[in-house]
Design a protein around this nucleic acid. Structure first.
Lengths: 93, 93
DNA sequence: AATGCTTACGGGTCACGTAATGATT
DNA sequence: AATCATTACGTGACCCGTAAGCATT
């Protein structure tokens, strides 16, 4: 359960590209690093998120389910950061 | 923006206890480690979350704002994990 | 041979615990 | 002196990039 928010960003990128190399480029990370992180995420969830068979990367049902949550979590974290920054600004007025 | 979900758990614990030593005990972490992590979270957000003055730990307005988001994020992550596990179970039936 | 994911490996950063320090009562 | 948070410091784990491996076309 000690997962980085970054792992969710990585996951969303791969889920959207369905292609590790392109996702890695988009994330400005090497492709092996990305592959490893996804692997560890799967391991920590004890679930396969992608189907790598047949020269094709596809989301598993579990992966698809996670995608919705991951996007929402990231969106909410962005919102939280903004809200916190705003609260701090108001305080120091 | 590369924050651990764990940092949010740490933050919530301190916010609820308003006491680093007790929160650390509850988290099974040493108190200096906890103090440092909170400090880094504040630094990464560029915001003070706690007021440490006067032998009293209090939430700042920004901290209070974050608390709501942090709880929600953690709740949602729990939910996501369960949902993913369930999706995987259904798949393998 | 080319494409694309994974495994191996070395190096730098990060998180932790113990110990020391600072500050308040 | 006691309490409680922060700073210092050394160690083990983690993340990354480069290089090598493996499979498919």
């Amino acid at each position: 359960m000690d997962t980085h928010l970054r792992d969710l960003r990585y996951f969303v990128a791969v889920a959207e590209e369905l292609h590790f190399t392109r996702a890695a480029k988009r994330l400005f990370v090497s492709q092996p690093a990305l592959s490893k992180q996804i692997g560890q995420l799967e391991q920590s969830l004890k679930v396969e998120l992608f189907q790598r068979d047949r020269r094709r990367v596809e989301l598993t049902p579990a992966g698809h389910k996670l995608l919705g949550y991951a996007r929402e979590l990231l969106r909410q974290w962005d919102e939280a950061q903004q809200a916190v920054a705003e609260a701090a600004r108001e305080t120091s007025l």
